[in-house]
Amino acid sequence: MLGSSHIVLSAIAMTLIVGVRYLITSGLFAWLTDKVRPGLYQGLKPQIGREIRWSLYSAAIYGIPTGIVAWGWQNRGWTQIYTDWNAYPLWYLPISVLLYLFAHDTWFYWTHRWMHVPKWFRIAHAVHHDSRPPTAWAAMSFHPIEALTGAVVIPALVFLIPIHAAMLGFVLFIMTLMGVTNHMGWELFPRWLVQGRLGQGLITASHHQLHHARYTCNYGLYFRFWDRLCGTDKGLGAFQDRKSRPREDASLSDATRSA
């Protein structure tokens, strides 16, 4: 009985952590957007309110399984998370991060394409694409079904792939950073990175912007590998003036025709 109450407390605590992390991170980048691109989110208060509401629902869906797994790691040794720096060679530290990111990216690409199947787009993924244009608050704005597909990834991976606790924290940092910056509506990273050789393999806001404009391309999360392999990489998008929003709305019909 005592163990069950501790699991519940862990799930509640992790939900609060995920929710507060979202509010702080998205709030920080929304504030930065207001300073760097003043007026970009003007007139979007109702949309931002919806994004925050859906994101806080998602925080619970992400937080509950994470809290349960965290309890199991600390109290039952369920996972492959380790804290001893000597448990594995130091060269394995960056390898483990890349393994997690690639596995997450793979899962995201294919579930994201599945979410663009007309039935599932209408049921779930339309919530995320209701952000037109997306803002820094939209990173976790998901229908519960979509949030559930994302929430299982990292909790599942910690049972399969050994990773140091600090490296796991770094993975979560990258996941949070890219989730927010890819939806801000402007490019945070310098042109030399985005348009250079490194940018040819990484996803930033310029790449993801085209997905929100066309719906049927650029499905990846971190890397352009699967998009390039499957022929769904259509390059970098342009950040259009807010007056061109009807063009984005027109793409809704495309979203319901093809995955």
Rank of each mutant, 00 (worst) to 15 (best):
L2W: 07
S5E: 09
H6N: 12
I7K: 15
V8C: 08
V8E: 08
A13R: 10
A13G: 08
M14I: 08
L16Y: 04
L16E: 07
L16I: 13
I17F: 08
G19A: 04
R21S: 15
G27W: 03
L28E: 13
A30W: 10
P38T: 11
G39K: 04
Y41C: 09
G43W: 06
R50Y: 07
I52D: 04
R53D: 10
Y57R: 15
A59Y: 02
A60C: 08
I61M: 03
Y62E: 06
G63C: 05
P65H: 09
T66H: 11
W71I: 02
G77P: 01
I81K: 00
N86C: 13
N86Q: 14
W91M: 12
Y92H: 00
L93Q: 12
I95T: 00
V97H: 14
L99K: 02
L101R: 02
F102S: 02
A103D: 00
H104I: 01
W107D: 03
W107C: 08
F108H: 04
T111W: 02
M115H: 06
K119R: 11
F121M: 10
A124R: 05
A124F: 10
A124I: 03
A126W: 09
H128P: 09
H128T: 11
D130F: 11
A139L: 12
S141A: 09
E146L: 07
T149S: 15
T149K: 09
V152Q: 15
V152C: 14
V152N: 08
I154G: 00
V158E: 00
I161Q: 06
P162N: 00
H164L: 03
H164E: 04
A166M: 14
L168G: 06
L168A: 04
L168Y: 04
G169C: 05
L172K: 11
I174P: 02
M175N: 13
M178V: 07
V180N: 06
V180G: 08
H183E: 12
H183W: 10
G185Q: 01
G185T: 01
L188E: 12
P190R: 13
P190C: 04
R191W: 13
W192A: 02
L193A: 06
R197A: 10
Q200H: 14
T204Y: 07
H208P: 08
H211I: 00
N218R: 01
Y219F: 06
F223L: 07
F223H: 11
R224D: 15
F225C: 05
R228H: 04
R228L: 01
C230A: 15
T232A: 03
G235K: 00
A238T: 11
Q240M: 15
K243S: 11
S244Y: 14
E248I: 15
L252R: 05
D254Y: 07
A255K: 04
A255Q: 07
R257S: 02
